[in-house]
Amino acid sequence: MSSISSIAVSGLKAATRRLEVSASNIANQQSTGALPGANGTVPAGAPQAYKPLQVNQTDTSTGGTQTSLSTTSPATVPVSDPQAPFANADGMVAAPNVDLAQEFIGQMVAKYSYTANLASLKTDREMSKALLDATA
C-alpha cells in the first residue's frame, strides 16, 4: 500500500471513530445518575450518569493520523429531576454534558472527512493504474 493510501486509510478510521463516539454520546444523553458528592463520588448503589467521550486526533510521524478517547470535561451537569429515585434533596441529578448541536456538527465533519479521504484513495488508485498502463 502506498503512503498516500495509508494516510487516507488512517483518515477514514479517524472519521469512523469520530462518528461512532458522537452516536454513542447522542444515544446516551438521557442516561442520568446521582449527583456526585463534594469528594466526586456517587453514593453506593446509586446509578452513575453516562460520561460523554471526545475524540482527540493527532498527526503521526508517518503522515497519517491517530485517535484517542477522553472523557468530556465536565462529564456531567446538574439538572432538575425531582421524580428520579436517586435525586438529591434539592431534586437534582447528574446528566451527561452532551451538546447536541456540537455532536451534529462533529458528525458532519466526520462525513466530509470520510468523503475526502475516500476520494484520495480513489485518486491514488487511478494514478497507480495509469502509471502501470503507461509502462506496459
Rank of each mutant, 00 (worst) to 15 (best):
S2D: 14
S3I: 11
I4G: 14
S6K: 14
S6F: 08
S6H: 12
S6C: 00
I7Y: 00
A8N: 10
V9N: 09
S10P: 01
G11V: 06
G11C: 04
K13G: 00
A14S: 12
T16W: 01
T16K: 00
T16M: 06
R17Q: 14
L19I: 01
A23C: 03
N25I: 03
I26Q: 03
A27E: 11
N28R: 05
Q29L: 10
S31D: 14
T32N: 12
T32V: 14
G33M: 09
A34Y: 01
A34M: 06
P36C: 10
P36D: 13
G37E: 07
G37W: 05
A38E: 15
A38H: 01
A38S: 12
A38P: 04
A38G: 07
N39Y: 02
T41R: 11
P43G: 02
P43D: 01
G45Q: 04
A46F: 05
P47F: 06
Y50A: 09
K51A: 15
P52T: 12
L53S: 12
Q54L: 09
V55G: 11
V55R: 13
T58M: 02
T58E: 13
D59L: 05
T60E: 04
S61A: 13
S61E: 15
G63Y: 07
T65F: 02
Q66E: 09
T67S: 10
T67Q: 07
S68E: 02
S68M: 07
S68Q: 03
S68Y: 00
L69W: 01
L69N: 09
S70H: 00
T72I: 11
T72C: 00
S73V: 11
P74D: 13
A75G: 15
P82F: 03
A84H: 05
P85V: 04
A87I: 07
N88T: 11
A94E: 10
A94F: 04
A95S: 15
P96L: 10
V98I: 09
D99K: 04
D99Q: 09
A101R: 09
A101G: 08
A101P: 01
F104H: 08
I105E: 12
I105S: 13
G106T: 10
Q107E: 12
S113L: 06
S113W: 03
Y114W: 10
N117I: 04
K122Q: 15
T123E: 09
T123Y: 08
T123A: 15
T123L: 12
T123R: 05
D124P: 04
R125F: 07
E126C: 04
E126Q: 15
M127H: 09
M127S: 15
M127N: 14
S128T: 13
K129G: 11
K129L: 15
K129R: 15
L132N: 13
D133G: 06
A134M: 15
T135K: 12
